[in-house]
Design a binder for these strands. Sequence first.
DNA 1: CTCCTTTTTTTTGAATGCATAATTAGATTT
DNA 2: AAATCTAATTATGCATTCAAAAAAAAGGAG
Lengths: 217, 217
Amino acid sequence: MDKIRQSTLHGEVAERVRDLIAQGVLAPGSRVPEKQLCEQFGVSRTPLREALKVLAHEGFVELLPNRGARVAKLTRTTLKNTFEVMQSLEALAGELAGTRISDAELANIEALHYQMLAHYKGGNMQEYLLTNQQIHEAIVVASQNDVLIDVYKNLNHRVRRVRFTAELSKDYWSQAVSEHESMVEALRARNGAALGEILRCHLRNKVEMSALEEMAE
Amino acid sequence: MDKIRQSTLHGEVAERVRDLIAQGVLAPGSRVPEKQLCEQFGVSRTPLREALKVLAHEGFVELLPNRGARVAKLTRTTLKNTFEVMQSLEALAGELAGTRISDAELANIEALHYQMLAHYKGGNMQEYLLTNQQIHEAIVVASQNDVLIDVYKNLNHRVRRVRFTAELSKDYWSQAVSEHESMVEALRARNGAALGEILRCHLRNKVEMSALEEMAE
DNA sequence: CTCCTTTTTTTTGAATGCATAATTAGATTT
DNA sequence: AAATCTAATTATGCATTCAAAAAAAAGGAG
């Protein structure tokens, strides 16, 4: 692993630790080994600890007094709550994007949409989910609301580790795809209200929720 | 000023700095004087700097490489964006609270509502705004969605410094009050959908927005 | 052998120290 | 006196150090 050198050292470290958590290298509930990570990243404890404070605020780890940081467990309840909020934010993003989206952004989303359809037809679920994710992120960005974008990105980060583990049923999948058709149509028509409504009910998150049923507490 | 001693030192420090920013002691755009604050709080630079990292993530300050932290300016755009998101979150909270709110919580909100009406009748705008704020917070809490509550609280923190500076027009004020009547009714009926709809259109934030017109960039 | 106590080691939280970058103050020139 | 360049001062970013707490290991009693 190469060392970290950048303007915001703690930011880089935070990014790395987030990755380790997302990849499951740092298991939920396990303590965060400060010393080891410092050696691994080639930094001292100061920036690492700064990063941990931020990560704690983001909900990735919890700080226990005199016991350092532990990787936060993603309970089913927390995940459900997170998706609930994200879905609401996406709906708002859709409403805003409807009036604010640029032609270039729309074209990009259309391109992603066709990619996604291809993955659907090809039965390539991993690729499908990735592209699907990108479309939703693009809509959020098109809202041009920086606060919304920030909050959404943060929540998205948190649930990253359970993403792409879903096994969609045929029915759910086809319905999600057809909803995406409507989304793109609403975007083309610059109809924010319609897009918001679709996203508010869009079952992508519900699909992801279903993946949690199997998840261990 | 008394010293800080608690389990999470950086958390306490962050709280204090937030207050200083909210109260305007630390002016927007001004640099955060590390040394001075350390002396004032009776702590070393380490916990203060940890707090600054968190505050930067929260949007209270911005970190400039090799130039420390500056108090973030709340531009009109950022405020507008923040209120937009908060309004959307409140709407979601309303939907959820409709089905989840406890009798005790409902009773509390009703009590606050009557307090608020009294302040309205008495023309006491400061007290009105405070109670109004408490009602909205209570609805968010009643959603029982911890993620939602967290995100909302954070955004609320950010705009604290411009809160309660609003001068409401008679018309806006009376309409906001009547909307609150509907809100309480919807809550009593445990009608989340209706409450969500009301909150989505509720002009409290719009009122607050109007106060920003006068605000300097 | 198991359970409890005591000692050692490790880890944590926070202060301090140090090298570098930025700011201020002062000198020099015009 | 104004402007520009240079030296002194200060602030910043990170590493290191130190005291206190927790975890682990060793010892002893039942």
